[in-house]
Design a protein around this nucleic acid. Structure first.
Length: 891
DNA sequence: TGATAGCGGGG
DNA sequence: GTGTACGCTATCA
């Protein structure tokens, strides 16, 4: 009987002393199945040192009760002309392999001795995570798995483009904290409520909330205690049988909490598709839960750790409310803090109903984030899985694992063996620092006249890997033995055999990713079906990801293929190319290269007309491409105006032609306009200033904007909310060492209202008010400020909030910060502030430098706590900085 | 200038 | 489980 299944998970169990591989998957009809394979044994290879005889070693291995065969394989680190005779050691129990590996090291170097058994099996059978397999076999008799079981006779990969329908279950738990500790503690606090939201209706319901309290709210299950609730939760989960569990910060909170409570209450934790107990492990700050046959997708993890360039939105805060408001246009139900939750739980039936709804909505939002394509298209993960061969849940463990698994498939086809991971990185020599890419010295300043062209090499590093055949398997460690025409020398003198002798594995995979992506993009142009298009887009995305991270992997010291010469050669060729490009461009065109980074050059022209400038860009791109081997320089975009502050810090008014029409935007790199420790006013001013400088080219107008903002601040006409900075209280207020604004505010609030408790876990927005105390001590609640009619401290906001990010921008435009605020006629803050003299005797003048009275240390601006960062003791700053300007605080 | 400590999300 | 583990900002030396 034949069954097609898409592979979700894979593990093994020991039955009668022998491993049995289990493949968990879904059929085309959406049925979950588990296929068992018996008779596959763990093995690895041993390259015997020259001071041992291979047959003697084989005998020694057999003496240990293991079987050993002599096989011929290519060794992968350094070019090998011919395969070498090495020993294949076959064991019985996968878990014993590390022990055998260590023992075998006395005879030589082991290979493929650290490959997980599931991947050993999958690679040998050509199977990939999320890939399809055709299984021929009969129903198996077993009680260990909770789905249809098949005993595999044969299994082989098959090509199916469609994906099986995945079932999602979103979960959210609520725990009412009794003691005033802020966060729940699993050793003490029981779970009060669990919501379960189904992607596919379950028994006619879209969702269920389980709780340990009476309620009349619908779609709820009332349980007599936590034990009954968790047991029912498990029963429903198993009955619904989801493939993917979803929850916001579930990986770090809900899942570990649920499992810990189940443990406390003696409920078996077999919530996966087999008898295996689910468990959570801690890795430093992050935790990981394993559930056999299922995967966890945590939208918090995605929003937090997926590269910002892959995301539809750059977030400053990552809480569920912010994320779903931005991406879905939906918000959480507002119930306030944990104190209010406790009130709702103990309150009226309406209170409880609200709490139940809150819990349900959290799950719904998490589910929608994952399934709506608004945050990330799940097809992308499926395609990454298919490409790397990793099963779904291992995808998040990083790029290296993806490359290594993909490479293992390729090595096997070519009769190569895979190196083991290099031994731990202890001594400093392992922190091998090789020279990186070139960042051309920027021509700092504001380039307002004449377009700046941005030209970059298309996939520079992958192209070089392909063109120069750069690979651990083509690296010649003994180049003296080869003829010069057989290899190519990199600028750092590493030799790689030419492609006609043998194409390296890295160049091959780069070429495969490159060509396939090109094909997929071609298919996308013709595809009309929306879902098919999404899958194709996900595929090209996954290919791009592998392509761009390949170089990084060669430089990853903990990588199995790490050879410093390989990574160093790639960057050395890169540096050579960029230097050549700069020369070619400047010697043959009437332009100047004003900046460049890794694979790009920024070319300043004397042309203001977009079309003409772009035309020149095309000519330059073609000229350089014709003169450099294996690389293509492309005319990417141009800046009508360009502001560069330093290496990797610039902004420009960018133009790109889309379907024959010029489209513009402000492009920025290394210059931030949003940061969580900036108030809204700073962000707004920053944006306005950049727009004015770049779009209007008017620096003095931009300066005027800043002066106006300073004016508004000093006159107190700015909305308080725009000045507030939000920070969280993370521990008890007396546990803080330094003097920090939000903690000082927390102390004040606690004094005013003792019922607020210890404030741990609360986020406080604060503004700095006038006064002669330390800045931090003057932090105040905006609402309180409004109520009492207090005044904010204008000097603080100008100096410490609005000015810092702007100073450098104006400086490179030729306006110092003192000039900026003083304007042409005004001479001091007094003038800017009008007649308003600070009432508290704080004399404030200008602030190019601040000098500590005690140790005479100079720094840019007064510190928040009023202490000198150098000698620590001084509370007074005064004197004149090198510019003759000064700030003085009198306490 | 560079290394390291702290923190987020969850309730 | 034949393993591997974030990334940024603030703050210190």
């Amino acid at each position: 009987m034949k069954t097609n299944l898409q592979i979700l998970d894979c593990d093994y169990v020991i039955v009668n002393g022998k491993p049995v591989v289990r493949i968990f998957g879904k059929t085309e009809e959406g049925e979950s199945v588990c296929a068992f394979y018996e008779g596959f044994l763990p093995y690895f290879y041993l390259d015997v040192d020259s001071d041992h005889d291979i047959n003697d070693v084989k005998f020694e291995i057999e003496e240990q009760g293991l079987s050993a065969h002599i096989v011929e394989k290519f060794l992968p680190l350094g070019y090998s002309e011919k395969p070498k005779k090495i020993i294949k050691i076959i064991g019985r129990d996968p878990s014993k392999t590390p022990e055998i590996r260590e023992w075998s090291k006395q005879f030589g170097t082991p290979y493929e001795a650290d490959i997980l058994f599931k991947y050993r099996f999958m690679v040998d059978f050509g199977l990939r995570g999320m890939g399809w397999a055709e299984v021929d076999g009969n129903p198996a008799r077993t009680h260990t798995v909770k789905c249809k079981a098949i005993e595999i006779k044969t299994i082989k990969p098959i090509d199916v483009i469609k994906n099986a329908t995945l079932k999602y279950l979103a979960i959210d738990t609520e725990t009412v904290v009794i003691q005033k500790e802020g966060l729940a503690d699993f050793s003490r606090d029981p779970i009060n409520m669990i919501s379960m939201v189904f992607s596919h209706e379950h028994k006619g319901k879209k969702s269920i909330v389980l709780l340990t309290k009476n309620t009349i709210a619908k779609d709820t299950i009332i349980c007599k205690d936590e034990k009954e609730m968790l047991t029912k939760f498990k029963d429903i989960l198993i009955d619904y049988d989801p493939d993917i569990l979803v929850g916001y910060n579930m990986e770090n909170y809900d899942m570990p909490y649920i499992l810990k409570r189940m443990e406390v209450l003696n409920i078996p934790r077999d919530i996966g598709r087999s008898e295996k107990q689910s468990f959570t492990r801690k890795y430093g700050m992050t935790q990981r839960t394993t559930i056999s046959g299922r995967a966890i997708v945590d939208p918090y993890y995605i929003v937090r750790y997926l590269s910002v360039y892959d995301q539809p939105h750059k977030f400053v805060r990552f809480d569920l409310n912010t994320v779903s408001k931005t991406l879905l246009g939906k918000t959480k139900i507002d119930v306030g803090g944990w104190r209010e939750m406790a009130k709702l739980w103990k309150g009226s039936s309406e209170d409880l109903a609200k709490f139940i709804e809150y819990c349900k909505v959290d799950s719904e939002l998490a589910l929608e984030l994952v399934t709506s394509h608004k945050l990330v298209d799940m097809n992308k993960f499926i395609e990454m899985s298919k490409l790397s061969g990793l099963i779904f849940e291992d995808l998040m463990t990083g790029q290296a694992a993806r490359h290594e698994n993909a490479l293992l498939h390729e090595l096997k086809k070519r009769n190569y063996v895979m190196p083991c991971k290099p031994k731990r990185i202890t001594d400093a020599s392992d922190e091998i620092k090789y020279k990186g890419a070139t960042v051309l010295e920027p021509d700092v300043g504001f380039h307002a006249d004449g377009c700046v062209l941005v030209l970059d090499f298309k996939s520079m590093y992958p192209s070089m890997i392909m063109h120069y055949n750069i690979c651990p398997t083509t690296l010649l460690k003994d180049k003296e033995k080869y003829k010069e025409e057989q290899f190519r020398l990199s600028p750092i003198n590493a030799a790689f055999v030419k492609k006609d002798l043998k194409e390296g594995i890295f160049p091959y995979v780069a070429r495969y990713y490159f060509d396939t992506r090109f094909e997929v993009k071609g298919l996308m142009k013709k595809e009309r079906d929306e879902e098919a298009l999404r899958i194709l887009d996900a595929k090209q995305y996954a290919l791009k990801g592998m392509l761009v991270s390949l170089y990084g992997y060669t430089g990853f010291a903990a990588g199995k293929f790490f050879q410093p010469e390989v990574a160093a050669s790639i960057t050395s060729w890169g540096r050579e190319n960029i230097a050549k490009t700069k020369k070619l461009v400047e010697e043959n065109f009437p332009v100047k290269v004003v900046y460049g980074d890794t694979d790009s050059v920024f070319v300043k022209t004397g042309i203001n007309d977009l079309d003409q400038a772009s035309q020149l860009g095309e000519e330059i791109a073609k000229f350089v491409t014709d003169r450099l081997e294996g690389l293509e320089l492309q005319n990417e975009k141009l800046f009508k105006r360009f502001l560069i502050l330093a290496k990797k810090r610039y902004a420009g008014w960018a133009f790109e032609k889309v379907d024959g029409v010029w489209k513009d935007k402000i492009a920025m790199k290394g210059i931030e306009t949003v940061r969580r420790d900036w108030c809204k006013l700073t962000t707004k001013t920053m944006r306005k200033v950049l727009e004015t400088i770049l779009k209007e080219g008017d620096v003095s107008k931009a300066a005027k904007i800043v002066r106006n903002v300073a004016h508004d601040i000093s006159k107190g006409t700015v909305i308080l909310d725009e000045l507030a900075i939000v920070k969280g209280v993370t521990k008890s207020v007396d546990q803080y060492d330094g003097v920090v604004p939000h903690v000082e505010l927390a102390k004040k609030i606690m004094q005013r209202d003792p019922s607020r408790g210890n404030m741990i876990g609360e986020r406080l927005g604060y503004v700095i008010i006038k006064g002669n105390q330390l800045v931090s001590k003057r932090a105040e609640d905006p609402a309180y400020v409004k109520e009492k009619g207090l005044e904010i401290d204008p000097a603080y906001y100008i100096q410490n909030q609005v000015m810092p990010p702007l100073e450098r921008i104006f400086e490179v435009c030729g306006i110092s910060s003192s000039e900026l605020l003083e304007g042409s006629r005004q001479r001091s803050f007094g003038d800017i502030f009008g007649k308003m003299d600070p009432p508290d005797k704080t004399v404030l003048k200008c602030f190019d430098h601040v000098v500590c009275k005690k140790c005479h240390w100079e720094f840019r601006r007064p510190t928040l706590n009023g202490h000198c960062p150098e000698c620590g003791s001084a509370l007074y700053f005064s004197g004149n900085g090198s510019m003759g300007k000064f700030v003085e605080f009198e306490n």
